[in-house]
């Protein structure tokens, strides 16, 4: 009876969004009379950070401080249409829509300021701190707040923008069957080190080393947060979570968190992440977003590492101690595969 070490590798090309009939997202941006900007979306933020990233993208495009932008993820009755938060499409699709909406709103902001300053809008620039001034003449300036107030109360003008980003339906080539279901790919490669106890069948992940290519990391701390949490979920799916553990009766299965297993705070695994930035040309400021790809490569890497450790190929998830032990028995014992060069 022994503890066997295993190492497994997996890599992934992960499509951003999907296109099975067109894949649109819309955004609306408008200013309040005191020069704050609201971004209205129908996408949902359930912790992945689209509110933070949308806020950054809108502020950067409008040329105003990030503190002056607020994102309302409304609801699908009152907000602009959106396909939804899925397929890792949020940053890419909604981000592009936000940039378009903010670009239109910025043009109106500059026109309203131009009217107040009696200059040409094309001569105006924003300083990113809440002011608009004539290029090369910072003293000829007006604040965003005063511009918004003047637009609303004197000029009778809205400072608002509409944006949509649509990846049109891709035609299928009738000869080759080829089509373009997605617009861009993110990538990851991941190495798992783990141990397998050939007496209990227990698998313990020791170490994760990963590289994720996400375009530009628009908010590096949020990217890291997604990657750490998502990889944890990958470990959880690979080794723990199932609604159908091998109980004799389905009705004996888990009905609560006490029996639906997940790794707890004592089971965290050191995870060393390298974020690679290759800004994507069609993505908002180059950012594709980490999305579901956080979790995906972890599962095959763990399966490969278990095979490397004891020679058991598990073709169903989760890789429970029982499946590992059955596999070892079927093989007539543990069969460590060794490591080239080790």
């Amino acid at each position: 009876m022994a503890i066997h070490h295993g190492r497994g590798f997996a890599s992934i090309n992960y499509p951003i969004g999907m296109n099975l009939g067109g894949d649109p997202s819309q955004a609306l941006v408008h200013s309040t009379p005191d020069g704050k900007f609201k971004v209205t979306l129908s996408s949902i933020d359930l912790g992945q950070g689209i509110k933070s990233v949308g806020r950054q993208l809108a502020a950067e495009t409008l040329g105003v401080p990030v503190e002056d932008v607020f994102v309302d993820t409304a609801d699908s009755d009152t907000g602009p249409h959106d396909m939804g938060s899925f397929a890792s499409r949020g940053t890419h699709r909604m981000g592009n829509a936000i940039i378009r909406a903010a670009t239109e709103a910025r043009a109106q902001l500059l026109e309203a300021a131009a009217e107040e300053l009696e200059v040409d809008a094309s001569d105006l620039v924003t300083d990113g701190r809440g002011n608009i001034h004539v290029r090369g003449a910072p003293s000829r300036s007006i604040s965003v707040e005063a511009t918004a107030t003047a637009a609303q109360f004197n000029q009778g003008r809205t400072l608002a923008g509409r944006g949509i980003f649509l990846v049109p339906l891709s035609e299928v080539d009738s000869v080759t069957g080829e089509m373009t279901p997605v617009s861009s790919f993110a990538h990851a490669a991941l190495i798992i080190d783990l141990t397998v106890d050939d007496e209990t069948g227990e698998v313990e992940v020791q170490n994760i080393n990963s590289a994720y290519e996400v375009g530009r990391a628009l908010n590096p701390r949020l990217v890291e947060q997604q990657l750490i949490g998502g990889a944890w979920m990958g470990v959880s799916h690979a080794l723990y979570e199932t609604t159908e553990p091998n109980y004799p009766e389905r009705s004996h299965g888990p009905i609560d968190f006490n029996h639906y297993l997940q790794p707890g705070p004592g089971d965290t695994v050191p995870h060393h992440i390298s974020v690679l930035e290759r800004p994507a040309p069609d993505a908002p400021f180059g950012g594709k977003g980490p999305g579901e790809m956080c979790a995906n490569p972890v599962l095959p890497a763990i399966a490969n590492a278990v095979f490397n450790a004891v020679g058991v190929e598990c073709d169903s998830l989760p890789i429970t101690p029982e499946k590992v032990l059955r596999g070892i028995r079927a093989n007539g014992g543990a069969r460590p595969q060794g490591r080239p060069g080790a």
């Binding site: 947060q225 750490i228 949490g229 944890w232 968190f257 997940q262 707890g264 705070p265 004592g266 965290t268």
Partner: peptide
């Protein structure tokens, strides 16, 4: 660190992987 892990062992988190919380 292990006292922290113990203290929050009754609190489930689906998102963070616990590491940032600890």
């Amino acid at each position: 660190r292990s006292e922290v892990e113990e203290a929050i062992s009754g609190n489930l988190c689906r998102c963070t992987g616990y590491e940032p919380i600890i």
